[in-house]
């Protein structure tokens, strides 16, 4: 059938316009149009893992809502696994999994296990497959001790892991994650990343991960789509994004004591110092490892971390690069 060659997600000239009424002055109200998504086009083949990145208000969530059939597009064409999401929403539900970072699909007042049982009946998941999937998620996402706990008592990180499991019990072909790592602790964050990487490589589930934090997708997605004001700004490898934007990452080092600014390291410059802590900028397209090695060799290094460039800065440089 040539299904492999056919794109799994097809988005062509997609638009979404919200007409809202806004207060203008004390009594007067005016109607304004918000073009949340403005002529977006891209395709994603089956089994790919794509980062969908942009600043707050860029139109990421709106796009995901159209891909899942929650919202009908104002214009353009949209196909997911050959289906039109808003018209064939119910049919599509069995084939997709969705995790909204801001809201849970679980039942607040029920123990986690009861939520999963409801999912099983709603999606009519065969018992054996349900058990297998639940066991796997429980183990990899470390949910075992949480199954008897009412969802409202879970921490944000626990709830997010529980939500990801809930979205995968019915073996969806594609998983949408809308800001899944927002507000997560470091341990949960890396557990989620590892889990998603496994899911994608072992089950070849297509994954679309939305975020405004470049750090989230750095270890996950070979391909990123950058959107701003509802338009596609970049489509390609993450490394390429850094080259286009000529953006910099920042190495934060904690030294054993207060020292003069680190200097003489190729390709790195010290931004500022504060007591024993120093900030070094280096090109985002370069690896941090050699730089770390040299700092460690020449200075009394205690601790370090790497900060990704803010997506707003990357986009600002893109605009500058286009006009200049």
């Amino acid at each position: 059938m040539g299904a492999a060659a056919e794109p799994f997600l097809e988005v062509e000239g997609l638009e979404k316009v919200f007409r809202i009424r806004r207060r203008a002055g004390r009594l007067r109200r005016e109607r304004v149009e918000v073009r949340a998504v403005d002529g977006l086009s891209f395709t994603v083949p089956r089994g790919e893992m794509v980062g969908f990145i942009g600043p707050n208000g860029a139109g990421k969530s709106t796009t995901v809502k159209m891909l899942t059939g929650i919202l009908a597009p104002s214009g353009g064409r949209l196909r997911v696994a050959g289906l039109d999401p808003s018209r064939e929403r119910v049919e599509l539900t069995r084939r997709i999994g969705v995790v909204f970072g801001q809201r849970t699909t679980l039942w607040w007042d029920l123990p986690l296990r009861d939520s999963y049982r409801l999912m099983r009946r709603m999606y009519r998941i065969p018992a054996a497959r349900y058990r297998e999937n639940l066991d796997r998620c429980t183990e990899l996402l470390d949910l075992g001790p949480l199954l008897t706990v009412p969802v409202r008592q879970l921490s944000l990180g626990q709830r997010m892991r529980a939500d990801i499991a809930a979205a995968l019990l019915h073996d969806p072909e594609v998983l949408y994650l809308d800001e899944p790592t927002i507000g997560l602790d470091v341990v949960s964050k890396s557990a989620v990343r590892r889990f998603l990487a496994d899911l994608n490589s072992e089950r070849s589930t297509t994954v679309l991960l939305t975020t405004h934090d470049l750090g989230d997708i750095e270890q996950l997605c070979e391909r990123v789509l950058v959107i701003d004001h509802g338009r596609l700004m970049y489509d390609g490898a993450l490394a390429g994004l850094h080259e286009v934007g000529e953006s910099e990452r920042v190495l934060v080092v904690d030294l054993a004591r207060e020292l003069p600014p680190i200097s003489g390291l190729d390709g790195a410059r010290t931004l500022r110092t504060e007591g024993p802590r120093q900030w070094l900028a280096f090109p985002a397209s370069a690896s941090a490892a050699p730089l770390v090695g040299r700092v460690a060799a020449e200075y009394p290094l205690v601790d370090l971390s790497v900060q990704e460039p803010a997506i707003e800065d990357v986009i600002a440089r893109m605009y500058a690069g286009r006009t200049g």
Binding site: K65, T68, G69, I70, R89, V90, T93, R94, I96, V98, F100, R103, T104, T105, M122, Y123, R124
Partner: peptide, 8 residues
């Protein structure tokens, strides 16, 4: 939103 993505 969350109810709309379920097959019920």
């Amino acid at each position: 939103d969350t109810l709309l993505v379920r097959p019920v």
